[in-house]
Nucleic acid binder design. Structure first.
Length: 480
RNA sequence: GGCGACGUAGCCAAGUGGUAAGGCAGGGGUCUGCAAAACCCCCAUCACCGGUUCAAAUCCGGUCGUCGCCUCCA
């Protein structure tokens, strides 16, 4: 059995065979850092976070590159997004870039998204981009015109193969006024001449200017992953023109396939409406995290296939959160039992149950990273674990440790929704001690059938977000 | 208008030829001093029409509907 991936390039699922056995090179289009990251970014990057985690879980040596776009993204008006933000906030362009780059990483860290191995910035790779453009001109795939350089779409017959576009139709459907210096309406900028007021500028063979929108990804992917690499990821909304242009530039220059597998994430809508910069209906990750814990957001995102569109709503995330709580409840129960379990090997029955769950999880996830299926396996496992512990009597350390290990592996390492043991900080230890003290006092009251006192303690703790559960073998607590 | 997806129970969502995973919500139980949690049971024939097949949610055609892209966006 091997991993299968839905390849957007071929529009079908294919067996995943990396270029080099045991190694996976993956490039994912990163954010343009001119504003706070929003939940749309969360969907895309949580999705690829899990894809990369899973590939590593399956034994691949993964090199994950995700760029930071800090120059070249233009508005309709021709103004650079970052320059506009800089003007609006009276800041230096690179201040804007730095602020939102840090913010993006902070948000991703908070969501449990592991950082890419390399996060190259467009502005840090101007020489590479210029070199690539020069080579494209030399090979006849690009031409300079009035200080700018354009890619000659007509020179690359396969243009449109990724997104399914046909050049002739693009010409007809073009809504934007065709710039005079272009030979063909579909030609796109590799390098743009900088107007006097444009302060993000570099020297080039064509004069002062800045790189076009798409060239950074081609240049940086080639630099870090090679002319041909395994997987290219990103959001589906960028398939055209961005991804299409990447393919054209790279393959026209290298005469070699660019990415072998294209995996793109479906778009996210907010309360049924497409979230977009222009509509202004964005929900930032920071705001979402004020309402839900990161595992809830991750579980919500992973509840549907990465390639499907999802609608972000309070109800949907709340439902995902409750589903997550079931799993988390079992994990905390197992860990609590483990602290006082008797020594012993893992039972044969439990071992068989865990092996079956692990195999089922792999079978689901091998099939194009089917995270909903993976979550279903964890839910099934959770029911079995609860039954085992609640009705099967005390379990041995070996059994409990094996269960905990599987949750850590599948739920923690791969899906990133099962946190490590509660923090072992001084504050956490103090909190645990205090709650246990209250539990002990409550137990004394209940022993005397003083239900009022017992219920008061439970109710007051609940108001503080601490939930008590009375079990046959004692009371346990957890955060609500 | 063009291109591409999708339409599965109240909601979310797997499942691509052999009689529908999982979660949430809801109903009924067990357990509990009461709760909470957990466990058990119940809850769909897969937008509609036609076709292919021994057999289709799964393949083909059509209809209706939703969405994405075609212009900045992950």
């Amino acid at each position: 059995m091997s991993i299968r991936i839905y390849n957007v390039l071929s529009r079908q699922k294919e067996a995943f065979v990396p270029l080099t056995e045991g190694k996976v090179n993956i490039y994912v289009c990163g954010p343009t850092v001119y504003d706070n990251s929003h939940i749309g970014h969360a969907k895309t990057y949580v999705s690829f976070d899990v894809i990369v985690r899973y590939l590593r879980f399956r034994g691949y040596d993964v090199l994950y590159v995700q760029n930071i776009t800090d120059v070249g993204h233009m508005l309709d008006t021709g103004e650079d997004r970052i320059l506009r933000k800089a003007r609006q906030t009276s800041a230096k362009p690179m201040q804007v870039v730095e602020t939102y780059t840090r913010g993006h990483f902070a948000d991703m860290d908070a969501l449990g998204v592991r950082r890419p191995d390399i996060s190259p910035r467009a502005s840090g790779h101007i020489p590479e981009q210029i070199a690539m453009i020069e080579q494209l001109i030399d090979k006849g795939h690009a031409y300079a015109s009035d200080g700018s350089v354009y890619f000659d779409v007509a020179s690359f017959p396969e243009y449109g193969k990724l997104s399914g576009r046909v050049i002739e139709e693009l010409e007809e459907g073009a809504r934007v006024a065709v710039r005079e210096e272009k030979r063909h309406p579909a030609d796109f900028a590799l390098w743009k001449k900088a107007e006097p007021q444009h302060i993000l500028r570099w020297s080039s063979p064509w004069g002062e200017g800045f790189p076009g929108w798409h060239i950074e990804c081609s240049a940086m992917a080639a630099k870090y992953l090679g002319e041909t690499f395994d997987i290219h990821g990103g959001g589906l909304e960028n398939i055209f023109p961005h991804n299409e242009c990447e393919v054209a530039q790279s393959e026209a220059l290298h005469d070699a396939p660019f990415a072998r597998y294209w995996a793109l994430t479906g778009s996210l809508t907010l309360e049924g409406v497409k979230m977009s910069k222009s509509l202004g209906n964005t929900l930032t990750i920071k705001d979402a995290l004020k309402r839900w814990r990161p595992e809830a957001i991750r579980t919500f995102i992973l509840s549907s296939h990465y390639g499907s569109p999802i609608d972000f709503s309070d109800e949907a995330v709340d439902a995902a959160y409750k589903g997550w709580q079931r799993i988390w409840g079992a994990v905390t129960l197992v860990r609590d039992q483990l602290r006082r379990a008797a020594p012993g090997e893992a039972g044969a029955e439990a071992t068989a149950m865990l092996d079956a769950a692990r195999a089922a999880f792999i079978e689901r996830m091998d099939d194009d990273f089917n995270t909903p299926g993976g979550l279903a396996v964890l839910q099934d496992l959770t029911r079995q674990v609860n039954t085992l512990i609640n009705e099967g009597g005390p379990q041995t350390q070996g059994t409990l440790a094996a269960i905990d290990a599987l949750y850590r592996e599948l739920g923690g390492d791969v899906l990133g929704i099962v946190p490590e043991q509660a923090e072992s900080t001084a504050d956490a230890a103090r909190e645990d001690g205090l709650v246990r003290l209250l539990i002990a006092l409550r137990a004394e009251a209940r022993a005397k059938k003083d239900w009022a006192t017992g219920d008061t303690i439970r109710d007051r703790l609940k108001e503080l977000g601490i939930v008590l559960e009375d079990r046959p073998d004692g009371t346990i607590w957890k955060l609500g």
